[in-house]
Amino acid sequence: MDKKEIRLAIDRIASEIIEKNRASRNITLIGIIRRGNILAKRLAKAITKKAKISPLVGSIDITLYRDDLQLVAESPVIHSSNIPFDINKKIVILVDDVLFTGRTIRSALDEIIDYGRPRCVQLAVLIDRGHRELPIQANFVGKIVPTARDEIVNVYLKEFDGRDEVEIVKTR
């Protein structure tokens, strides 16, 4: 996926979010740190442009909620979550770059529930690469990319990596 394809995907997801939620003022976006956080900000911009609503944007770090935290060798570095608004009764669009096993989303859902009780949570991802290990599906997908289990999907975003690109890397 190149720069243009990523932009079109974000535009389309933004339109779908507006349509599904009838341009509600209760739409909020919460991005999963790090790249989901960047995508959430871009989505918010696109939504504002299209629908004259300015969704609130927050970010969460799910590390402390990981189900494999006890299994990794060293305690991973954690970043601060930042949800500067009350999520009760809001429509929360959870945003991440790649949907894979679904475990990150499970962690994120648990964390969000600790902040309050949103009216609903919907999931938007740039890439769905398959191989789910939990019953989790996205509501909005930029692109479905069939992959082998051992391939790696790298998402690069300008704000963080200096360029917009999605690549699939074979490990062998």
């Binding site: 770090d61 402390l64 601060s80 979550s81 600790d114």
Partner: peptide, 16 residues
């Protein structure tokens, strides 16, 4: 500093 932020959450507990 990150944990300081956790303490200000509505439910200030994480399952780490």
């Amino acid at each position: 500093r990150t944990f300081r932020e956790v303490l200000d959450r509505p439910i200030p507990i994480v399952p780490a």
